[in-house]
Write a protein that binds this DNA or RNA. Structure first.
Length: 175
DNA sequence: CCCGTGATTTAT
DNA sequence: TAAATCACGGGG
């Protein structure tokens, strides 16, 4: 799923305005057996209960008291797995995104990080548990991605997870 | 490299 | 109720 989401278009409607970008970086979080995952060992808290929804829902949480992260829940109650969306190439609503991120240095800085893309697209906790087959936020077909263009590297910011921090579960589109 | 930041989780 | 933690970003 993390590889398959590369090249697809994430769309968020706000005030009748389409904000979108192509997904170019993701990370897989493998549920019960993944020490880096919020649902490791089946942990359930007020925050992580979203993980246990059926695939196709949004898991949005706040980190460091200031940033949101947007994830796609990918499986089922028995298999609480998700994909973190880490970067987009902005497509529609770029002027709107610039207003959402007044400090951005340029277009490339708009969605080049999990917190940045949430700020640019106006994604916040109100979208937690959102149905991705609804009409507020959803994912479109996007562009074709040749398998040879996908890079696999270790996930970012999960050093607390020991050996799992080195698992090559971060995927990005070359170039 | 360092550090702000405060919601969320965990320890007491 | 208090303390620790943290899927990050921004500025040096």
């Amino acid at each position: 799923m993390a590889k398959g989401l590369l090249g697809r278009r994430l769309v968020h409607f706000v005030g009748g305005q389409r904000l979108s970008g192509l997904i170019v970086e993701t990370e897989a979080y493998l549920g019960l057996k993944d020490p880096a995952c919020h649902s490791y060992h089946g942990k359930i808290t007020a925050r992580t209960k979203t993980f246990y929804l059926p695939g196709g829902h949004a898991y949005v949480y706040m980190i460091y008291g200031m940033h949101y992260c947007f994830n796609v829940v990918t499986r089922s109650e028995k298999h609480p797995e998700a994909v973190l969306i880490r970067a987009l190439v902005p497509e529609e609503g770029i002027e709107f995104m610039k207003r959402n991120r007044p400090n951005a240095r340029g277009e490339k800085d708009l969605c080049s990080g999990p917190g940045k893309l949430c700020q640019a697209l106006g994604i916040d906790r109100s979208l937690n548990e959102a149905d991705l087959e609804g009409d507020r936020i959803f994912i479109e077909k996007g562009i074709r991605v040749p398998a040879g263009k996908i890079l696999s590297t270790p996930r970012i910011g999960v050093d607390y997870a020991g050996e799992a921090a080195r698992w090559p579960l971060r995927f990005s589109l070359e170039d």
